[in-house]
Design a protein around this nucleic acid. Structure first.
Lengths: 205, 205
DNA sequence: GTCATCATGTAAGCCGTTACATGATTGC
DNA sequence: GCAATCATGTAACGGCTTACATGATGAC
């Protein structure tokens, strides 16, 4: 989830952590106030696995500190670093690698029963998906929502007494879901129109 | 959060864990699929702190196993129990205590910047709140939502290019928030009407 | 020269999940 | 007697937050 977010933002342009967080909360806003305590470790993890790299002002990649594979050696090195160069505090510009890009597309195409946050995140990146996959993604979402709505309708029958507030909540939620479906339908219609347009252009070209 | 949910449900009627979970997912539905792995430990915790108690079929309270305070003694007892009565597997009916009720009201009145789940949960229980507090609760929610909306409007100015999907997401979210506000406004209006009615009745009685 | 803001990082801990293990009850 | 479901529980782990610590940069 976090990985997807980071890779997605870096796929658009190189960026450093502090800024990444800003851009993320712009898109996900109230849904996800990601904290530095998870962002920075995530960046290091992604760097270690080769999905992103640190670049300098000229856009040249900066080699990461290489592990020797020797525990005691690494510890000694860490101790030494701590005394001499106690970890850099200037901004570190990260750039996505080719590896990172394919990892990003994988994560984007994965379909693990989305929560709201996950869907919002993926939607905001779905421009990177090929048209058919994008359409499939939207339709999966639509299916999730219609099922949710069906579940909401089924419920009242078997249930015990629900008070006014709970009922209002349930009704409002159903209404919201219907709106969400309408919205998705618009997106799907747009998608289809565009794809039809592309095909026609392709045929006449 | 979990504590609030459990206490709230038990405030309505005694219940056992398995059923608690069902009732919870009926109300919170897609927002919160609570798992047994957290529910049962929560129940034991609440029992230990005296917020709930186990009752038998006649509604009599069943005394919890008392710790001797002696580590070795407790361990020995645990070993013994394991051999002879290896933890009960029949349903355990829980009932809220007076202590639990006040704890519940405390949790309900607390105002830690709600997420959606927290709000939904509290709303479904707010019938337990005195009318003024309930109104205050709804108005806090309204304030949160209007602020969110204001934030959404402010944003577009300073931001970098946002693609079609992200823009659509942002717009849809703003629309949803406006709907939420309208809904809250209805609830608030109802509240006020009712309170006014109560006062009139009180005056004429 | 000092204050606000930008920027990176670590450690502890919470809150919840998944996976697993087990026992009781009911219907056929 | 056996399957399905009801019911309780534990262990391991994961993701994210909070609180903290530190350093760099620019404005005044």
């Amino acid at each position: 989830m976090l990985d997807l977010a980071v890779l997605g933002l870096l796929a658009e342009q190189p960026c450093h952590g502090y800024d990444l967080r800003k851009r993320l909360s712009e898109t996900l806003g109230p849904l996800w106030g990601i904290s530095f305590g998870s962002l920075y470790p995530a960046l290091r993890r992604l760097e270690r696995t080769g999905a992103v790299e640190v670049i300098d002002a000229d856009g040249e990649t900066v080699a990461p500190p290489v592990s020797t594979g020797s525990l005691s050696g690494d510890l000694a090195a860490a101790r030494l670093r701590r005394r001499t160069r106690p970890a850099r505090r200037t901004r570190k510009e990260y750039r996505i690698t080719e590896d990172g890009r394919s990892r990003f597309l994988e994560l984007l195409a994965d379909e693990p029963a989305e929560d709201e946050r996950g869907f919002a995140l993926k939607l905001s990146f779905c421009g990177h998906l090929p048209p058919e996959e994008r359409l499939a993604f939207l339709e999966r979402r639509r299916a999730t929502l219609t099922e949710r709505l069906a579940g909401a309708k089924r419920r009242p029958a078997g249930s015990r007494t629900i008070d006014r507030y709970t009922r209002s909540l349930l009704e409002h939620r159903a209404t919201s879901t219907r709106h969400d479906i309408e919205w998705i339908d618009e997106l799907i219609a747009q998608e289809r129109a565009e794809q039809a347009g592309d095909r026609t252009e392709g045929a006449t070209a």
